[in-house]
Structures are given as structure tokens and as C-alpha cells.
């Protein structure tokens, strides 16, 4: 497989990585007309995307970001397994001890989870492929429902519970009224509560990650026992995905997981609700419409519309009865389509 005439093939893995990413970045730069400096391979995809992003149609950009993210995962997996294969190769082809080398390798990967600890920063120092999509997915999904104090919320998600407690204990009371200060203080407590549940969730993900690695190891051993071969990185990637899904599924169906997940969502929603109250207090001081006030208006409008619909329906019924009694034609439905009274739209493809 080795081809010394090509910059992409070399026994030295790190050097090889640098070469192929340099070459690949050149390809990207050629397409975009950018011949800037080449970053290390870990940052390469980011750089590449940023360079080329402007050329992509808007509809494709989110997809490309997802491809990029997963490509990083794929590279990370390649990096880790290349290191394992090097170790096995060094041990010699006749060595039957590949199983203990694999076990050491898996144990090494699992130790990366131990570094996550109570501080979220540990996640970023892990191999990309070990980071659960549930970890980054939660934050992405919840951005649409985060309250107005985004920075504080992000801080809470990324700090240890102890640090947050310290943060709030040092925070001075502020706000125009005593009631406002009290609400803020309650929000602080709710944020701490959310943060506690977020940490529990992270710890569960850590446990899941470790168990997925155990499952992956078992799958590799099972293949060996069945005299089957692993011939590609993609095969390893698929095994890891299968192992992760199986482990996750087993946990997710457990009541304990459902309760933990609900605690996380419920804590976030309590905090969000309190934030709404605080926001309304600010708006009220400024003599602007509050969300509570808007809700009242919308509710009343809804009730009125229902009443109108009810009257309309009764009117239609009466009309039908009258029509029947006067012997006019009996159409199955008397209600006139609203479309007949409203502007018709030209149907367009979605």
C-alpha cells in the first residue's frame, strides 16, 4: 500500500497527517482562489469550511457544517486506531497478544472520559469521536429556548456546580425594587438547579461513552472469534456507531434515564419561566406590553373566534333547516368555503 512517490503515503503517521491535510487544503484553496497558510490537521476542516463557505448556497451550508463535524469524528477515529495498529505492528506479527493491546487501548480511551469530571472543558480535550452527539445536540436544540440571559445560561452549562454556587454567592443584589431582586435571586437558584441536572446528564453521557467503548471492544473480539476480519476504517467506524447505539438504547429505555432527562428539561423550563417573569417586570416598568399581557389578549381573541365559529355553525344549521322546509335543493354541506370570500392564492411548489 505504501507509495513513497506520493505525499499522501508515509509510515510516519503524524507526518503523513500533516502532508495529506496540506495537500488537501491546497485543493480547497485552489477552488476558492485562496492560497493562505495551512493549519494543523485538527483545525484543517474548520479552516477549509471557512474558506469555502462563501461559495456554498445558503441551503447547503448547515449540511456542510454537519459533514465537517462528522469528518472530524472520522479523522479522530483514524488517528486513534492508527496508533493502536502501530502498537500491534511494533509488537510483531507473531504476537498473539493483540487482545491485551486492544484492552489497553480501550482503557486509554476510557481515561479520556475521566478528564471530563465536573468541568465541561474536559469534553473538548477528548477525541472527537468520543464526544456524544447528545452532548452538543442538547446545547444546539436548547438555544431556541434559552432565556434572555444567554451568557449566564452558557456559563451555567459549562461550569462546575461549585463554581456556580460561588458565582452566585458573590453576586450583589441589583434591580429597581426589592421584589425584582428577589425574583433575580430565585432565578439564580433555578439556574443552579438546572446546572446540577445538566451535570448529572453529562455524567450519564460519560458513563455511556465508557460502556460504548467496552461494547466496541467486545464487538471486535467477537469478530475475531468468528474468524472475521476488519479491513477498513469505515468498518471500525460502523462498529463504533453500532456499539454506541446499542448502549444508548439500553439506557434510554430505562426509567432512570427518562427521569434524569425529564429533570434536566424540567429544571431548564422552570428557569425559563422565571426569566419570563423577570423580563415582564422590566417591560412593565418601561410601560411596554408584557408576555403575560399578550397571552391574555391572545386567549380572549381565541375565545371570541370560537364563539363566532359556534354562531356561524348554528346559523348554517338554521339555513339548512329553512332550505329543507322551503323545498330548496339539499346540498350535503351548506357552509360556504372561506376561500370564496378570501383572496385565492396561487398554489406554489413547496
Amino acid at each position: 500500500m505504501e507509495n513513497k512517490s506520493s505525499p499522501f503515503f508515509h509510515p510516519d503517521w503524524l507526518k503523513l497527517q500533516q502532508q495529506y491535510t496540506d495537500a488537501f487544503a491546497s485543493m480547497g484553496a485552489e477552488q476558492s482562489g485562496d492560497s493562505g497558510k495551512h493549519p494543523p490537521w485538527q483545525d484543517f476542516l474548520n479552516q477549509w469550511r471557512q474558506t469555502l463557505d462563501k461559495d456554498l448556497p445558503g441551503s447547503v451550508k448547515p449540511l456542510f457544517a454537519n459533514i465537517q463535524q462528522q469528518s472530524t469524528v472520522f479523522y479522530s477515529l483514524a488517528d486513534e486506531f492508527a496508533s493502536l495498529l502501530n502498537t500491534i505492528k511494533t509488537a510483531g506479527p507473531t504476537s498473539g497478544d493483540w487482545r491485551s493491546l486492544l484492552a489497553d487501548f480501550i482503557a486509554g480511551l476510557k481515561r479520556q472520559f475521566d478528564n471530563v469530571g465536573m468541568d465541561n472543558k474536559g469534553w473538548s480535550s477528548m477525541s472527537s469521536f468520543l464526544r456524544s452527539p447528545l452532548h452538543y445536540g442538547w446545547w444546539q436544540a436548547m438555544q431556541s429556548s434559552t432565556p434572555f440571559v444567554d451568557t449566564l445560561f452558557e456559563t451555567a452549562s459549562n461550569q462546575s456546580h461549585e463554581k456556580m454556587q460561588q458565582y452566585f454567592s458573590m453576586m450583589p443584589g441589583f434591580g429597581p425594587t426589592r421584589e425584582f431582586q428577589e425574583k433575580l435571586s430565585q432565578a439564580g437558584l433555578l439556574l443552579q438547579d438546572y446546572q446540577k441536572h445538566y451535570q448529572t446528564y453529562q455524567q450519564a453521557l460519560t458513563k455511556l461513552g465508557k460502556q460504548s467503548l467496552d461494547r466496541l471492544e467486545q464487538k471486535i473480539v467477537d469478530l475475531a472469534n468468528a474468524q472475521q476480519k476488519i479491513t477498513s476504517l469505515r468498518q471500525i467506524y460502523n462498529l463504533w456507531i453500532d456499539a454506541s447505539e446499542e448502549t444508548y438504547s439500553r439506557h434510554a429505555f430505562d426509567d432512570g434515564h427518562a427521569i434524569m432527562y425529564a429533570n434536566l428539561v424540567n429544571a431548564l423550563m422552570k428557569y425559563r419561566l422565571q426569566s419570563n417573569v423577570i423580563m415582564d417586570m422590566v417591560l412593565e416598568v418601561m410601560n411596554l406590553p408584557t408576555s403575560a399581557g399578550m397571552n391574555t389578549v391572545i386567549k380572549r381573541q381565541q375565545q371570541m373566534r370560537n364563539s363566532v365559529q359556534q354562531f356561524q355553525s348554528e346559523l348554517d344549521q338554521i339555513r339548512r333547516t329553512v332550505k329543507k322546509k322551503t323545498g330548496a335543493g339539499s346540498s350535503p354541506v351548506a357552509r360556504k368555503p372561506v376561500a370564496a370570500r378570501k383572496k385565492k392564492t396561487t398554489p406554489k411548489p413547496e
Binding site: E2, A78, A224, S232
Partner: peptide, 23 residues
């Protein structure tokens, strides 16, 4: 029996092929 019929070079080749497809 070691199930890995893979070498670091082979992985590098596969990643390179992946990159080509991506590009």
C-alpha cells in the same frame, strides 16, 4: 487471531480517499 487486516498506511489511504470524495 488478530482481526485487523489494517495498517496505519491503509487507514491513511482510506482517509485520503475520503478527503478526495469530500473535496
Amino acid at each position: 487471531m488478530n482481526p485487523f487486516e489494517l495498517t496505519p498506511e491503509k487507514i491513511a489511504a482510506e482517509v485520503f480517499e475520503f478527503n478526495q470524495k469530500l473535496a
